[in-house]
Amino acid sequence: MNVRHAVQALWAIIRREVLKFIRQYGRLASALVRPLLWLAVFAAGFRNVFGIAVNEPYDTYIPYDVYIAPGLVGMVLLFNGMQSSLAMVYDREMGLMRLLLTAPLPRWWILLAKLCATAALSLLQALAFVLVAWALGTELPLLGPQTPMVLAAAVGAALMLGALGLLLSVHIKQLENFAGTMNFVIFPMYFMSTALYPLWKLEESGAEWVWWIARFNPFTHAVEWLRFALYGKDPGIAPLVVLGTLALCFALAAWGYDPQRGFGALTKRGPGGPA
């Protein structure tokens, strides 16, 4: 593989996705409305209902909106990662993926470029959310010695959720199936995590089966990695879970997009179907 050619292709794909996103003003607005509603309405309504005890990574009591802010950043990353799956299905149905995947580059590199483009868009949307949240009075400790840790956690989470979207795009046959598939992924993944409530509260409330699911949910570890990174604390095994999930999802997606060895919907279309 020619390194210069590969880097040019990587940059071209990322640039195409970013420019397309910039032209779609409504896409950014829709990406921000959902978490901002949670922040401005849900957090305000439950500010005095849920008591957040002093627990890692916090050294003192915090407002509820500060607690859920990393989870809402994760929501932005999650929804954009899933939306990338929709874009992949659309490109496949329109024949664009056929042209892209026949480029004189390894197929996994093309998919990696798409994944990097998805992560870049996710991070741009997350940054926009953090700025608007700051304007609403919810400040997160982004700047300081912990900044590299925060960036690593955000990039890791964006790549993991983008890889999950990439894997799902292998199995979604048509655009009409997208909404149903996403409902079985996005909502369980988000609500059965620590995005809105601490893990110990689930165990304390007696919802043991939810606690077990949340404990092994990779989205929980993505949120916790980001939450601990904001305060410069050790996130434990969270980075290993996130990076391991990223590697597994990407490997399975690359296998699924290989017509010789793949599985799922792509391998059942035959030579006449879209790539």
Rank of each mutant, 00 (worst) to 15 (best):
R107Q: 14
G156I: 05
L161A: 06
L112N: 02
M160P: 06
V49G: 12
V76I: 13
V241H: 02
A152M: 14
S85I: 01
R27M: 09
A126Q: 00
G206F: 02
T118G: 13
V185Q: 06
N80S: 13
L124D: 02
L111T: 00
S193W: 10
A53T: 12
F46E: 05
S193H: 08
V54S: 11
A29E: 10
A207T: 07
A31P: 02
S122D: 07
G180R: 05
H5T: 00
G264F: 07
I68D: 09
T245G: 12
N48S: 14
A247P: 06
P141D: 08
L96Y: 13
L175M: 15
G256F: 09
A53R: 15
N55P: 02
A87R: 14
F178E: 09
G137Q: 12
D234V: 03
V170N: 06
Y90I: 11
V241Y: 03
I237E: 05
A154V: 03
A6C: 05
W225A: 07
M94G: 06
G156A: 14
A154G: 11
P188M: 10
F50G: 03
S84Y: 15
A87W: 14
L78V: 04
G71C: 12
R261V: 04
P274M: 05
T102H: 14
L166F: 09
V241I: 15
R227C: 02
A163D: 09
L123K: 01
L159A: 04
R4H: 01
L161H: 07
Q146P: 10
Q125I: 02
I14V: 15
K20Y: 04
L226G: 05
A44Q: 13
E139G: 04
L161Q: 11
L167F: 13
A238H: 13
S205E: 08
V170Y: 02
A69S: 13
A195R: 06
R27I: 02
P239W: 00
W108R: 12
Y231A: 05
V41S: 07
H221A: 04
A12V: 01
L151K: 09
F219K: 01
I110G: 00
Y64R: 09
P259K: 09
G264C: 08
I213L: 14
I13C: 00
L77W: 01
L226R: 02
L136V: 08
L37I: 13
N2V: 00
D65N: 15
E176C: 02
I213C: 03
V66Y: 10
F42E: 06
Y61E: 13
I52E: 10
A126K: 00
T220G: 00
A247Q: 08
Q174V: 06
E139Y: 08
L230S: 02
E17Y: 05
A254L: 03
A254C: 15
F250E: 07
T60N: 11
F228T: 02
L248A: 15
P188G: 10
A152L: 15
T118F: 05
V185P: 06
P218H: 10
P145H: 11
W255V: 06
F191K: 04
F216N: 04
Q24H: 12
S84G: 15
P148L: 07
F216L: 14
R47W: 05
V3W: 13
W200H: 14
L10Y: 01
N55T: 10
G51H: 14
L127M: 12
V185A: 09
L111C: 00
V170G: 03
L168A: 13
A157Q: 11
T102G: 10
W209A: 07
Y190T: 10
F250S: 09
M75D: 07
